[in-house]
């Protein structure tokens, strides 16, 4: 189970993805809701960053913002998203379309609904390949067979003309992964890729995702609410709470010595693959709704170590061991730390 925790990437390499102070808001009749507030993180080449949090914490929204598919009325209100050093959050529609699929691949949660039921997997693969790579129809088909083989579909040359409903859930998720990899993207955003699958299949899919990072140097943003999945797969973890990053650091550090009181609560029991993170949360109360986020630290109503300044001043990410945590307890500069 335990893997070498040595980061695969070398620390000096420029990050594949860099998100700086990202703000995403919903503009509605009832006013503006900040769904993501000052979110920053980066992912190095070949690195798997786990993004974890309760539902509504903003994990999937972060993924959608990176790939440029925020749905109305949501929109980016501030910050920057850089892909291999190039700013992509302000690209026009036509250029962003070329980034999607070509440079950033996506894997969605439910393999049963992610594939178009009326087209064969071959048609969906070759269309995606032909959209991004200058290949002949024949070459695109050959690449499609290759991709299916790579993601572990047995007898890919025979299965390529099958429709999605001919495949089981786990096999369909492999097809989805193949689709995400069509143009060999630098970054793959995997949004709850195993949640809808049987436990036995989950491990296979995670192993597949890990192998991709290793063999192609593809960076992965792995969004999940399942700490077991994170422990199994990620190199680093970002813990999100109420649209903010609460803590970010190496996986082992987050699991073994969490710093933010929310992460501490989250790690309250030993995570086992397949168990829901929701079951693990042993903190009283629930995450505030977007329209009721308290001033100061968003976690203050539920925090056992709440201090005066937590109620009014919002903590930024501060060094905490090998991690960074957005908590005043970590504040060594002003000397208020416990």
């Amino acid at each position: 189970m335990q893997r070498d925790q040595q980061p695969r990437s070398d620390a000096a390499a420029p990050p594949i993805l860099e998100v700086r102070n990202l703000v995403v808001a919903f503009h509605g009749l009832a006013g503006t809701l900040r769904a993501l507030d000052d979110v920053s993180f980066s992912i190095a080449p070949g690195e798997i960053l786990g993004v974890v949090g309760e539902s509504g914490a903003g994990k999937s929204l972060t993924g959608a913002a990176v790939i440029g598919l925020l749905e109305r009325p949501g929109r980016i209100d501030g910050g920057e998203i850089l892909l291999a050093g190039r700013r992509i959050d302000n690209l026009p529609h036509a250029q962003m379309r070329k980034v999607r699929g070509r440079e950033i691949g996506a894997i969605f949660q439910d393999p049963l609904t992610s594939l178009n039921p009326l087209l064969t997997v071959g048609e969906q693969l070759t269309e995606t390949i032909a959209t991004h790579l200058a290949l002949s129809a024949k070459a695109a088909r050959a690449r499609a067979v290759e991709l299916l083989a790579e993601v572990g579909i047995p007898a890919p040359a025979n299965r390529i003309d099958d429709y999605p409903h001919h495949f089981s859930g786990g096999m369909r998720q492999r097809v989805v992964i193949a689709l995400a990899l069509c143009a060999n993207p630098k970054l793959v955003i995997a949004d709850e890729p195993t949640t809808a699958l049987d436990v036995s299949v989950q491990a296979q899919i995670l192993e597949l995702i890990r192998r991709l990072g290793r063999e192609h140097g593809t960076a992965v943003m792995l969004i999940t609410h399942d700490m077991g999945v994170i422990a199994e797969t990620a190199d680093r973890v970002a813990v999100m709470y109420a649209g903010r990053v609460a803590e970010i650091g190496p996986t082992r550090e987050i699991i073994e010595t969490p710093h933010h009181p929310y992460t501490v609560g989250l790690m309250g029991s030993v995570p086992v693959i397949g168990e829901d993170a929701e079951d693990l949360v042993q903190i009283d109360g629930s995450m505030p709704r977007l329209n009721a986020i308290p001033p100061g630290c968003a976690f203050n109503p539920r925090c056992g170590e709440v201090m005066g300044r937590c109620l009014s001043q919002r903590p930024g990410l501060m060094p905490a061991g090998r991690s960074q945590a957005a908590c005043w307890l970590m504040d060594t500069v002003t000397g208020d730390a416990a």
Binding site: I67, L69, R97, K98, V99, R100, G101, R102, G105, A106, F108, Q109, D110, T113, S114, L115, N116, P117, L118, L119, E127, T128, T131, H132, V176, L179, A180, C182
Partner: peptide, 26 residues
């Protein structure tokens, strides 16, 4: 609103293909 249309967008397919080949056919 379906996942497969979102996924088709996420793969960077052309709008024309998404609207007709994928959406209208369904």
């Amino acid at each position: 609103r379906t996942d497969y249309i979102k996924f088709a967008r996420a793969r960077g397919l052309r709008d024309r293909s998404i609207n007709f080949r994928h959406a209208f056919k369904n």
